[in-house]
Design a protein around this nucleic acid. Sequence first.
DNA 1: GCCAACGTTGGC
DNA 2: GCCAACGTTGGC
Length: 166
Amino acid sequence: MSSKTQRRYWLMKSEPNVYSFDDLLSEPDGRTPWDSIRNYQARNFMRDDMRIGDLVLFYHSNAKPPGVAGLAVVASEPYPDPTQFDPNHKYHDPKSTPDQPRWILVDVAPFDRLPRFVSLDELKSNPKLAEMQVCQRGSRLSIQPVKPEEWREVLKMAGYLGPALT
DNA sequence: GCCAACGTTGGC
DNA sequence: GCCAACGTTGGC
């Protein structure tokens, strides 16, 4: 009796000096809207492909070093990004209206800590992750799908043995 | 701070 | 619809 929906895995980038995994861990609501994304591919992933319960590699970009800092989980259905309607917001979109919102987001919640940070250097030097999107040159997309085998490999590199493996 | 990669904009 | 100019991302 199941419309069996496979859990998917994702990588979401954030600059830790703007919003870090620790910031997510200390959210009073236990979650945050993944707002201000203004890239159509990234939006489409949130709008069309993410499901509540999908797991996320929380990736620190523009960091020293860049890499995977923690595990998160998709925590809401898609809904319009409120920042697009705010004229004072940096990412206000004058072409967007509540009737016809252009930018859609999901909420993200912390799922688990990692025993250790896994740097981009380490990811790149693992032959099993040669095809992983974040390892590719010029990989700018801030939301990327992660294959199940890549997911398991990254968690293994982090020394992780918790529930995100199941 | 540099700059390669690449997405977006706008003139035509 | 092409494509040059421009802006942004993000590793280094």
